[in-house]
Nucleic acid binder design. Structure first.
Lengths: 130, 130
DNA sequence: TTCCTTGCAAATCGTTTGCATAATG
DNA sequence: CATTATGCAAACGATTTGCAAGGAA
């Protein structure tokens, strides 16, 4: 299963790199179709899966029933707005210590963790006040 | 929308209380059907949703694409085995401090968080060694 | 030429919903 | 009686897959 070049994959990756809002497969599809009118949704899914398997992008399952994709593969945490559903990168101190904490009384092997914070994003907060 | 008694709901809740492995809706359905042969999957879903809305149970979206349900509503963290997919309660110190950490540089409002640890559970670890 | 990738459509999976009927308060 | 809950089946949305044709190595 050696990877072969594909223009579609390149365009998908390139598009994802321009975004920091963790788009869904469908959003990727809608946008990529502007430059590549007859790309199919299946191809988008196949490539997003492929790219996340090779580690070039990250698949985020934030719990809203739709997968989100992130071209920023550096370790960081996410925030999901309970109101508008947006997914935001969280700038915060490193919390890897929680993994050490989890290991203490656990019999198996812990390889990683993922944390999602939720609440109201800045703009939904403002909307609520007015 | 006042809640009315329903035997089905009672049986579903009772079953969930006997389990500590966070079954999916389908597993609940399969089991409850033993005592209640003509209950429908739709009813199971409706009641699981209802129970989680009233806070009697918790719906867990662990990222495997299927919802899991937990009758233990006390705050605790979960571990998901990357191999067998089992969902286990994690006994560990309180890590609520990460929420404080997240708030520091965030402009919106953070109401909560959820953390999933992943790796290999104890029995999958053993399988790997042999 | 080999075999990976595509577009398309159909299939799958988990979950929700509409509807007529049954049960609860 | 008013209203909520049920069983059933159909509908749904997100994602995957089979297949024949196209493109890369």
């Amino acid at each position: 299963m050696a990877l072969k070049y594909s223009r579609q994959r390149e365009v998908i990756k390139a598009f994802l790199c321009t975004r920091k809002d963790h788009p869904t497969a469908d959003v990727v599809y809608m946008n990529v179709r502007q430059q590549y009118p007859n790309i199919s949704l299946g191809t988008v899914y196949r490539n997003l899966t492929l790219l996340s398997e090779t580690g070039e992008i990250t698949r985020l399952r934030v719990g809203d029933g739709v997968d989100h994709f992130d071209a920023d593969t550096s370790p960081h945490n996410h925030f999901i707005c309970s109101d508008c559903g947006c997914v935001i990168d969280l700038k915060m101190e490193n919390i890897d210590y929680i993994q050490t904490a989890a290991k203490k009384e656990f019999g198996g092997r812990i390889d990683g963790y993922c944390t999602y914070f939720y609440g109201l994003c800045e703009s939904c907060c403002r909307k609520l006040q007015s």
